[in-house]
Design a binder for these strands. Structure first.
Lengths: 337, 337
DNA sequence: CCCTTTGATCGTAGCGCTACGATTATAGAA
DNA sequence: TTCTATAATCGTAGCGCTACGATCAAAGGG
């Protein structure tokens, strides 16, 4: 029977085997566990591989072994440096262990998560990493059926589907509130990216608000309309202070928003922290060189990636290790608040 | 013969077929070209799919059709917002057309590119997107053999392996130099991330330097040691001005470096642009709210993604369209220089 | 009513690899 | 030397799907 034409020029394993004068099985074995092949044949096989420029066909291998070296990761966006750094660390660790990352981003649309999960599961991945705890009912049932290790990251506190690596944003909010309260501030504001998009910012706000309420301070909140926008943050801060001139300190949902706030202060001639204390979140690289240096919170961006990789690798080796890790955050006290 | 146990609980296409009382072929056809299946069976098949929670096995499909819906992308890092935005746009467009991105990052180590190319090619991708023109000889021969559409992005001016979408960094450097020269600046500096890592920054420097040399101005260059670091940028600027007090304007290799420069000016009490003009690169969100607003260059971050997606989709449909696109840059003149 | 045409469905043969038992080579013990 | 024990190699049967020609059903023409 006539068949569709062979896929481009790529050599197959059989061709390698033929050239090396061994069976395809031996080539396969050489590729997977080289030390179980005699050095004489190993050498012949390697020569053949080089001669033919042989590249294994990952799909064929994956199908035959009904395993894949894929780990799926779903994040809201890769343009937040937070997630990008976690991804990069995760990728580095996992690649070293022979895994390949398949990245999906929801662009902050929670309904897209399910579609991404489907698409990733159809690759038969070895594991899956999700951001946060909030998943559609359908997604949860897909995941339950899939029977692979799941990690939920960048959050902590809820039960979780399987493994969890992150920190509590609520606690983070409290931490900042307590720091400011300790320094005598009473009237606070929370200046935030949109809560709908950034649900973790809302958690931080809740922690912040609760701690302040506990000690009798006041707190005002303002949300940006769209995506994180430094200029809009400045304007919003301005109108906030206009309406609530008693405000003494503002906790921003991320360092970029805080940067916008600081520039606005400079523009208005408000001294930092004299007139207004400003605290960021993220401890991004630039925060130590603002004027004055920015007080901020350092989330364990890379540590999250490191821990997830370790957890996943252990689990895939069969070990059953710790399944919930709270990495906490570090308050970086500088001069802005 | 005893076989390894079936892969988890996932239903196969045959099971769907059985439940819907049709042949597997019909299910396959329904999934690929639904309108070629009668509505009666289509309905039965869809019901069966839903009942069983069937997810197609992408690897099996890919192997059988010796095609994959994968597009590989190799970037130096995903933590640069430039590349992240291009990736996100590319992903959005390509996903809409049914493709899946496989992202590899070299972490600025050119020698890792080859390894990534191998690893991606082993997935039998439909296309491959690389950053820049610089590839090892081995990589080039791998790519030549692979016979898939290739796009080189974020650069323009050289011949290219296949398609090219980007802009000329050399021209960009000239553009900034000409702008500054026009405004009467004669003694310039280029403050840069490490040239070894960021070879496009070096190209911009060359363009900058050449244009200045043409009109008799002077230019000094300073490179950061490691990765882009705002604080280090400030210190470096300081020592630069110390050694070359005649310096009137500084072009920074990206907005973060420029931010560091601006903060240093503020700290030193140098007026911008009176004592020192500062120009960035990237037109990142925050640049319009610095004090004073930052003059910078806008690279076509998202447009690159859009064009690549279109090119790739057209090519994969068989059309043979334009293969080299120069998107140019836009100088955003604000008040800092 | 039979024959043709068109559209819908199905059966078969792989895609390139891996798992695993079977077979063969090698080395050590008796 | 002969027999085991062990290591190295091989043959076979799929993994779950798609491509494609073959078959079957439905609809129209004479």
């Amino acid at each position: 029977m006539k068949r569709r034409r062979r896929n481009s020029q790529r050599a197959t394993m059989s061709e390698v085997a033929q050239l090396a004068d061994v069976s395809p099985s031996t080539v396969s074995l050489y590729l997977r566990r080289p030390d179980e092949v005699s050095s004489r044949r190993a050498e012949r096989i390697q020569t053949a591989i080089d001669r033919l420029g042989y590249l294994p066909n990952t799909m064929a291998g994956g199908l035959a072994s009904s395993r894949s070296n894929i780990i799926g990761v779903i994040v809201p966006t890769i343009t937040f440096s937070f997630f990008a750094e976690t991804l990069e660390t995760l990728e580095r660790n996992l690649r070293a262990a022979g895994y390949q990352l398949l990245i999906g981003n929801t662009e902050f649309d929670p309904s897209r998560e399910e579609e991404l999960i489907r698409s990733i599961l159809s690759w038969n991945p070895s594991g899956l990493v999700l951001t946060g705890f909030s998943h559609s009912r359908k997604s949860v049932s897909l995941l339950a059926k899939s029977d692979i290790p799941i990690v939920e990251m960048w959050d902590y506190g809820q039960e979780g589907l399987d493994m969890v690596v992150g920190f509590s944003h609520h606690t983070c909010g409290r931490l900042v509130a307590e720091h400011l309260l300790r320094n005598g501030y009473r009237h606070m504001a929370f200046l935030s990216t949109n809560f709908q998009r950034d649900i973790r910012a809302r958690e931080r706000y809740h922690g912040f608000r609760d701690a302040i309420a506990d000690s009798g301070g006041s707190v005002v909140v303002r949300e940006l309309a769209g995506r994180s926008n430094t200029a809009e943050a400045g304007k919003l801060l301005c109108s906030l202070v206009d309406e609530h001139p008693e405000t003494q300190a503002v906790f921003c949902s991320n360092d970029m928003v805080a940067l916008g706030a600081m520039f606005e202060c400079q523009r208005q001639g408000w001294s930092i922290p004299g007139r207004l204390a400003v605290v960021g979140f993220g401890n991004q690289d630039f925060t130590d060189s603002t004027v004055p240096p920015m007080t901020t919170v350092e989330p364990p961006r890379q540590e999250i990636g490191d821990h997830i990789a370790r957890l996943l690798i252990d689990r895939l080796k069969g070990d059953d290790t710790a399944t919930r890790i709270d990495l906490g955050v570090r308050l970086i006290v500088r001069e802005s608040g």
